[in-house]
Write a protein that binds this DNA or RNA. Structure first.
Length: 423
RNA sequence: GGUGAGGUGCCUGAGUGGUCGAAAGGAGCAGUUUGCUAAACUGUCGUACUGGGAAACCGGUACCGAGGGUUCGAAUCCCUCCCUCACCGCCA
C-alpha cells in the first residue's frame, strides 16, 4: 500500500509512475485526495469538539467535589447537548477512513525509476543471457518423459491421491528434491541468511501484510473451517515475522531464508504450459527475504540477484536474467528481476526465480518499521526472492543433463544426492 | 472437544470510574563519577492522526486485544467478537 502523504504531496508523480505499470490512476487518485481532505477536516472538527467535552467533564468533576450541584448539572447538560454532534462526526470520520482504505488498497506499487516501460513479458529487458543455447540430440526428451522413463516422478499417482498438479517424487527423484533443498539452504546460510521454518498456513492479517489479500484470495487454498490459507510462497510467513515490529536500524539488514512447500490454485491454467513440472499446485521452494534500510535496498536487490545467479552458475544450467518491464511486474513490486532457465527439450525459458524490491509497499501494510538513534520510526524496505523454486530446476536438470546413459547430476549436488547419475 | 484464567507501553508488571498516557522495575539512550571490564547515580525514554512552525519544538485528539454500549467523565462497569495461556481428553 502506498502512503497517503506521498499521494497528497505529489499526486501527478504517482499517476505518472503508475502509468509505467499501465495503470490509469487518474480517477482513483482524485478520489483519494478528496477522501483524504475530507478525513482530515472531519478529524480536526471532531478533535475540537472532544477537547471541549473533555474540558467540561473535568469541570463537572471539580464542581461535584466542591459541592456545587446546580452548576455541575448545568454543565452536564451542555455536554449532553454535544453528544449527537460528536457521534455524527465520529461516524463520518470512520466512513472516510474506510472508504479511503478501500481505494488505497486498489493502487499497485509505484515502479522504480529504473523500470523499463512495456506492456507484456515480451518487453522485458534481457540483462544477461548465456552466449549460445545448448543443442540436444534429436533423441532428446522433455522432462515428463524422462521422469517416467527413469520412474522418478509419477504424475498419475498424484492425480489419484490429490489431483492434477500434485506429483509424487519417487526414489532418486525424491532424493534429488531433498538434495536441492539442502544445498539451497546451506548456500543461503553461507551467504548470511538465517534459516527459519515458518508455518505454511497463514491467517488473514498475514495475507494482507504481504499483499496477497484482499485481492488474490482466488490464488490461495483456503482451509475454511479454520479460516487459514495455505501459503503460495514462504515470502508470506517469513516477511510477516516482522509485522508490527520496530527494528533497531543497527541490526539491518535482516536476512532470512526458509524452505517451504508452496500451494497455488492457478485457477484457469491449462494446456502445454502446465505439462509436467511447468506449473504445479504444490511445489517446493527455498526463499530468501531481507528487511532493509531504504538507502540500501537497491544495493541489496542487486546482491540478491547476484546470489541467485551464482546458484544457477553452480548448477551449470543455461539461464538468463530479465529486468521486468512495468507491464509484467507484480502488483506489489517496485523492481523485479526474473531468472529463467532454458528448457532444452521444450525449447523455452522457464522462470525459476523472481527477486523483488517492494520498497515500503509491504512494510506500510505490515507496519514494519525501523528506528535510527532516537528518531521517529520509519518504514523499512522489504525484499524477497526465490533461491530457488525446485520443479523447473529439476525439469532443466533432467532435460539439459540427459545423456544416452542417464541424467547427470550437477557436481555440487552429488554430496547431497550421494549418486552421480539417474539411470 | 471439556473446564478455568487472562489479554496494559520495547519487556516484566501495578492500576479504587474523575488528578492515568498510565505506578514500579528492567532494557535502551544521554550525562556524571571511579584507573580498564563493570558498577553506581542523575536525567530521558510509547505510537498514530492532526493544527501551528523553515526547524528544534509547541498544542489538540485517539489508543491499555478489536468493535459497540452505559456515563458529564471509562484501562477500570456492561455486551459481542478475536486471540493467548493452563489443566483434562484425544493425538503426531
Amino acid at each position: 500500500m502506498l502512503q497517503v502523504n506521498i499521494i497528497r504531496e505529489d499526486p501527478d508523480k504517482v499517476i505518472e509512475r503508475l502509468s509505467v505499470k499501465n495503470f490509469d490512476a487518474k480517477e482513483i487518485i482524485g478520489q483519494i485526495i478528496e477522501l483524504d481532505t475530507g478525513r482530515r477536516a472531519t478529524q480536526t472538527e471532531l478533535d475540537q469538539l472532544l477537547s471541549h467535552q473533555n474540558t467540561i467533564a473535568k469541570q463537572v468533576g471539580e464542581l461535584f467535589k466542591s459541592g456545587k450541584q446546580a452548576e455541575a448539572n448545568d454543565l452536564k447538560n451542555k455536554s449532553i447537548a454535544l453528544k449527537d454532534e460528536v457521534k455524527k462526526l465520529h461516524d463520518l470520520l470512520h466512513k472516510y477512513e474506510h472508504d479511503l482504505h478501500q481505494q488505497m488498497v486498489l493502487l499497485p506499487n509505484c515502479p522504480s525509476e529504473k523500470v523499463p516501460s512495456g506492456k507484456s513479458a515480451a518487453d522485458n529487458e534481457v540483462i544477461y543471457s548465456i552466449d549460445k543455447l545448448p543443442e540436444l540430440s534429436s533423441e532428446a526428451q522433455p522432462h515428463w518423459e524422462l521422469a517416467s522413463k527413469y520412474d522418478i516422478i509419477d504424475f498419475e499417482l498424484g492425480v489419484k491421491i490429490s489431483g492434477a498438479g500434485f506429483p509424487v517424487y519417487k526414489g532418486k527423484g525424491a532424493r534429488l528434491q531433498r538434495a536441492l533443498i539442502s544445498w539451497f539452504l546451506d548456500r543461503a546460510g553461507e551467504s548470511g541468511y538465517t534459516e527459519v521454518q515458518p508455518p505454511i498456513l497463514i491467517n488473514e492479517a498475514s495475507g494482507f501484510g504481504t499483499g496477497q489479500l484482499p485481492d488474490k484470495e482466488g490464488q490461495m487454498y483456503l482451509v475454511g473451517l479454520d479460516n487459514l490459507y495455505l501459503i503460495p510462497t514462504a515470502e508470506v510467513p517469513i516477511t510477516n515475522i516482522f509485522r508490527d515490529e520496530i527494528i533497531d536500524a543497527a541490526t539491518l539488514p535482516l536476512k532470512l531464508t526458509g524452505y517451504t512447500p508452496c500451494f497455488r490454485r492457478e485457477a484457469g491454467s491449462y494446456g502445454k504450459d502446465v505439462r509436467g513440472l511447468n506449473r504445479l499446485h504444490q511445489f517446493d521452494k527455498v526463499e530468501i527475504v531481507q528487511i532493509s534500510h531504504p538507502d540500501r535496498s537497491y544495493d541489496i536487490l542487486e546482491e540478491m540477484k547476484d546470489y541467485v545467479v551464482s546458484l544457477l552458475k553452480d548448477l551449470n544450467l543455461p539461464f538468463r536474467v530479465l529486468k521486468l518491464c512495468g507491464g509484467d511486474m507484480s502488483f506489489a513490486s517496485a523492481l523485479t528481476y526474473d531468472m529463467e532457465v532454458w528448457s532444452a527439450a521444450q525449447e523455452k525459458w522457464l522462470e525459476v526465480s523472481s527477486v523483488s524490491n517492494f520498497e515500503t509497499f509491504q512494510s506500510n501494510r505490515l507496519k514494519l518499521r525501523y528506528r535510527e538513534h532516537n528518531e521517529k520510526p520509519k518504514l523499512a524496505h522489504t525484499l524477497n526472492g526465490s533461491a530457488l523454486a525446485l520443479p523447473r530446476i529439476v525439469a532443466a536438470i533432467l532435460e539439459n543433463n540427459q545423456t544416452s546413459s542417464g541424467i547427470q547430476i550437477p557436481e555440487v549436488l552429488v554430496p547431497y544426492t550421494q549418486f552421480e547419475k539417474i539411470d
